[in-house]
Design a protein around this nucleic acid. Structure first.
Lengths: 141, 141
DNA sequence: TTTAGTGCAAAATCTTTGCAGGGTA
DNA sequence: TACCCTGCAAAGATTTTGCACTAAA
C-alpha cells in the first residue's frame, strides 16, 4: 500500500519517455510514501538511495512537465511536490503553518474554463491552495 | 480610472493599522496600474518613488497579511502580487509563458470548504492558477 | 553505440535579518 | 515623544547552469 508496484512506475516513466533509472524509481517511491506535498529538502532526506540535490531538482521538473507530479506553492518560499494521483489541497495557517487537508478539488471549474479559452485546450495542471488563520492562533491574538 | 482615490488608499491603510507613508501610497498606485499579478522586480521598476527592494518586500508581506494584496505563484520561482480587489486568475503556458486571464474564481468552493473545516473559520486568501501548453506551442512540437 | 541521466562545483536569483537613522501619528 | 517605517549592508535560502563522467536503451 505504501509503494507503487514496479509495473506502475515503469509505465509512468515509459509513457513519459523517461529512462527507468534507480534514482527516479527511488524518488517516485519516496513521493508515494509522503502522502502529501513535500519540499525538496524533505524529499531528499526521505530517500533510500543517495541522490544529488541537483539531480532531484532536474527530475522533479521533468516529472511536473510529464504530468506525473503535482507542484504547488504554500507561500513558504519553496516548491512542494506530490504525486499527481495523490493530488489534494490544503488550508494553511499563515501564522503557525498548521495545515488541514481537504478533498474538494477545483476540477469541475477547470472544464468550464478550458471550454471558454481560445488559446488553451486542456489544463494539464493547476494549483489551488487556501490560506487563513487557524482558530487557535485567532484566539491567541 | 487608473488610480485609487486618496481616500480609498487612506481607508485601506487605516483599517489595517498601517501608517500612511509616501512609499506605501506609491506602491498601491503602482499595483493598481499593473492590472495583473506582478513580480517584485517589475513592481519596483514601475514605481515613481524611489523605494528600496527590502522595503518593498516588507510592505508586500504586510499588505498580504492585511488582506489588501493577493499573493500568488506562477511556478516561476518568485512571488506575484496583485490588489485584492482586482483579483483574478490565469492559465499559464508552461513552454512559452503566455498567459490568458479568466474571471471565474474559486470563491464558491471556498464556502463549502470552510464550512467543513474544524480548525479554520474563514478563508482569508487563496491561490488558484492553471497550467497548460498553449495551442501555438502544441503545434510547434 | 548513442543518447539521456547524474554528480560536482560554482553561480544566479530571490528573500530575509539586524541595525541605525528618519518620518508619522 | 513614541513608535513605526525605511535604507543599507550583509547573509540565508532556494534553484539553476556548465561540464565531465556514467548508465540505460
Amino acid at each position: 500500500m505504501a509503494t507503487y508496484t514496479a509495473n506502475e512506475i515503469d509505465s509512468l516513466l515509459e509513457t513519459s519517455g523517461l529512462k527507468r533509472t534507480r534514482g527516479r524509481i527511488a524518488v517516485l517511491h519516496a513521493l508515494r510514501k509522503a502522502h502529501k506535498p513535500i519540499a525538496i529538502e524533505d524529499l531528499h532526506t526521505s530517500l533510500t538511495e543517495p541522490i544529488h540535490f541537483v539531480t532531484l531538482y532536474r527530475m522533479l521538473k521533468q516529472f511536473v512537465d510529464a504530468g506525473i507530479v503535482y507542484q504547488t506553492d504554500l507561500r513558504s518560499g519553496k516548491a512542494y511536490y506530490e504525486l499527481q494521483r495523490e493530488h489534494h489541497h490544503h488550508i494553511t495557517c499563515t501564522k503557525c503553518g498548521h495545515q488541514e487537508e481537504f478533498s474538494i478539488c477545483a476540477n469541475p471549474l477547470l472544464n468550464d474554463i478550458s471550454k471558454k479559452s481560445k488559446d488553451f485546450e486542456d489544463i494539464t495542471s493547476h494549483t489551488f491552495e487556501l490560506f487563513s488563520v487557524c482558530n487557535s492562533c485567532q484566539r491567541s491574538t
